[in-house]
């Protein structure tokens, strides 16, 4: 095991260290994507780049993630509707993926020899992304701190070669390293706590997500987002033959952005309890269909460059 560093003292320092660690292992260090999304996996650097164009491709970034249904009005110490994921994609999956991951925790000062550290079977699936993977949720003292996944499919397309995706739950890891019982008590830096920076966000958005969001407007926006993806992809498909070289790239990524919008709108509708389980399934399928089309278009566009 790699040498265990002195425990990282603040939340922001933890992010710096992870960026530094993964940059040292060949990752392109990116910023979070500027769209609302439920998980770091939705970032195009993961969702689309797992399919191509580059092989090898390694990236790392912090992705602010929004899951409206997880809001608890700032009352639950481990549950937030908006939180930070540190996302790493390693393609192809290195033989020492696991050792690397554990070394990154040691670099934060998390000594697995002092904790109950478990890899619990967890076959990951993102129904809206049409993505599947096999792996584990990594638990430290019963708390899930990371999702460790070998991607098998994205947008319904087989990932070749498979990538490793690591999704660190930053707040949870910080609460272990800083030995705090609540995420709100975490030191963000030496002057501010996580609560001081974000607690109001949780209260306001829980109210909005569960009580106030305008259902009609959300439905309308969802339909709009869906229609515009379809339009763009139809345009892309019909133009592809004639103007493929001109339109490729821009259209696919823009269409993907619309998928992200649709996905977030769906999450909001879900949080408001505005959709029945049956409709819920239908909407998931609608988003998945869009993502699948985008992934197919993306693969078609970049496939030739991919060595995988």
């Amino acid at each position: 095991m790699a040498e265990v560093a002195k425990p990282v003292g603040t939340f922001q320092e933890m992010i710096f260290r992870l960026e530094q660690f993964w940059a040292g292992h060949g990752c392109v260090v990116l910023r979070g994507y500027d769209k609302e999304m439920g998980a770091g996996t939705f970032h195009p650097a993961t969702a689309l780049y797992a399919l191509g164009p580059y092989n090898p491709w390694r990236c790392a970034y912090v992705q602010p993630s929004r899951r409206p249904t997880d809001g608890r009005y700032g009352e639950n110490p481990h549950r937030l509707q908006r939180y930070y994921q540190f996302q790493v994609l390693l393609k192809p999956a290195p033989e020492d993926s696991r050792e690397l991951y554990e070394a990154s925790l040691a670099y934060l000062g998390l000594d697995k020899r002092r904790h109950d550290f478990q890899y619990a079977e967890d076959d990951w699936e993102s129904p809206t992304l049409g993505a599947t993977g096999l792996g584990w949720e990594v638990r430290c003292d019963g708390l899930e701190i990371t999702q460790f996944t070998y991607f098998q499919k994205m947008g319904g397309i087989e990932c070749n070669p498979p990538s490793v995706e690591l999704t660190y739950g930053l707040e949870r890891i910080a609460s272990i390293v800083q030995e705090r019982d609540s995420v709100y008590d975490l030191a963000w830096n030496k002057d501010f706590t996580y609560g001081e920076v974000h607690h109001q966000v949780e209260i306001d958005f829980s109210k909005y997500n569960f009580e106030q969001a305008d259902l009609e407007a959300l439905r309308h926006d969802f339909d709009q987002a869906e229609a515009s993806v379809k339009q763009m992809l139809d345009r892309f498909d019909s133009a592809e033959a004639e103007f493929a070289e001109v339109l490729r790239g821009e259209a696919v990524l823009a269409a993907y952005d619309k998928c992200l919008e649709a996905s977030h709108l769906f999450n909001l509708l879900d949080a408001r309890g505005a959709i029945s389980p049956q409709v819920r399934q239908e909407m998931i399928l609608r988003v998945r269909k869009l993502v699948t089309r985008v992934c197919q278009a993306w693969k078609g566009q970049v496939g030739a460059q991919d060595n995988g």
């Binding site: 481990h78 020899r113 904790h115 109950d116 550290f117 478990q118 003292d141 708390l143």
Partner: peptide
């Protein structure tokens, strides 16, 4: 999961600490 490398006597201390931590997670 008992970590490798715990030395004599450290186990009970580790157990007490782990119980406390897991109880917090369960409570949440």
């Amino acid at each position: 999961s008992l970590p490798y490398g715990l030395e004599g006597g450290a186990e009970s201390e580790w157990e007490q600490k782990t119980i406390k931590q897991v109880e917090k997670v369960a409570q949440a």
